[in-house]
């Protein structure tokens, strides 16, 4: 955990610069005399300002992939490049929202303190911190709960805190690891809209991992479909839905249904062990 004070670039007008580049990523767990290949040769690029969803069947190594990208796990081969720099440890320009919202917040800190702590570690001045924290709190709709402790809030609210913390950190790439898998359906829809909203408002680059096909299609500009283990990318689907999305309207359009149908087919194929040409499991 070294100190790196180089600020992450905040210019996002140019959407052609790659924010995150994953090249030939491979992860093999070496166990007790038996090696397990979790991820094999993954390559994709996320441009600055994009919102990309990764969707795959359960057992597709989604979490492994995400831990490799975030620098929490060493890769066996290939590389992850963030802002032109190779990732070997958790990089300064990245924030992660975990699925286990209750366990990723510090229970001994208030909502405000939870959001402020990473900014403090970044070396921001007090006034600047206070302003960014307040903006993030207001943006996720937690203005009234700012001084509560996380465990006093509902699950959905806790995940809002984790999202606010990540957004206030102003990362080059925001990783979200199945963030809404553990909340109820209604809350989930609200939080999906919140992500789209924050993406517009703060112009963050988002990589959103999920097992939910509807969620991936509804949220993303692109959807990367993963194969079964050992994981490769089956298809990079462009989502042609309009920029303004709403739970009611968007989800009932024919276009949404078609895209959903297409991705669903791919996932079914993945589950049956289908792999791209020239690759064998």
């Amino acid at each position: 955990m070294s100190i790196d004070t180089t600020p992450a670039p905040r210019e996002r007008i140019d959407t052609t610069t790659p924010a995150l580049d994953v090249r030939g990523l491979k992860k093999v767990y070496t166990g007790h005399g038996r090696d397990v290949e979790a991820v094999r040769n993954l390559t994709f690029t996320i441009r600055s300002g994009e919102l990309v969803c990764i969707v795959g069947p359960s057992g597709a190594g989604k979490t492994t992939l995400l831990r490799c990208i975030s620098g929490l796990l060493d890769v066996t081969d290939g590389e992850v490049v963030l802002d032109g720099k190779k990732v070997t440890e958790p990089p300064p320009g990245m924030a992660v929202v975990f699925q286990e919202y209750g366990r990723s917040l510090f229970p001994w800190l208030t909502v405000r303190q939870n959001i402020e702590l990473p900014l403090k570690e970044k070396g921001l001045k007090k006034a600047e911190r206070a302003e960014k924290v307040q903006t993030a709190i207001d943006a996720v709709g937690l203005t009234d709960s700012a001084d509560a402790h996380p465990w006093q809030l509902s699950g959905g609210m806790q995940q809002r805190v984790a999202i606010a913390r990540a957004v206030a950190y102003e990362p080059s790439v925001l990783l979200m690891d199945e963030p809404f898998a553990a909340v109820d359906a209604q809350t989930r829809a609200d939080l999906e809209d919140l992500v789209r909203d924050l993406w517009h408002k703060f112009k963050v680059t988002v990589l959103f991992v999920t097992h939910d096909i509807d969620e991936a299609v509804y949220l993303g500009e692109r959807v990367l479909v993963l194969s079964h283990r050992p994981t490769v990318i089956l298809e990079d689907v462009k989502i042609t839905l309009p920029d303004e999305r709403s739970q009611l309207e968007t989800r009932s359009t024919k276009e949404f249904a078609d895209l959903r149908h297409h991705v669903y087919e791919q996932i079914q194929k993945a589950k049956q062990g289908f792999r791209p040409d020239g690759d064998t499991a």
Binding site: M1, S2, I3, D4, S70, G71, L72, P90, P92, M94, A95, V96, F98, E100, R103, S104, F106, L117, P118, K120, E121, K122, Y169
Partner: peptide, 18 residues
């Protein structure tokens, strides 16, 4: 909690803070 440890790693907490 491992998730809490991962969180502090991704936010690059300094050693004393950690």
């Amino acid at each position: 909690d491992e998730v809490l440890v991962d969180t502090s790693r991704t936010y690059r907490f300094r050693k004393p803070t950690y």
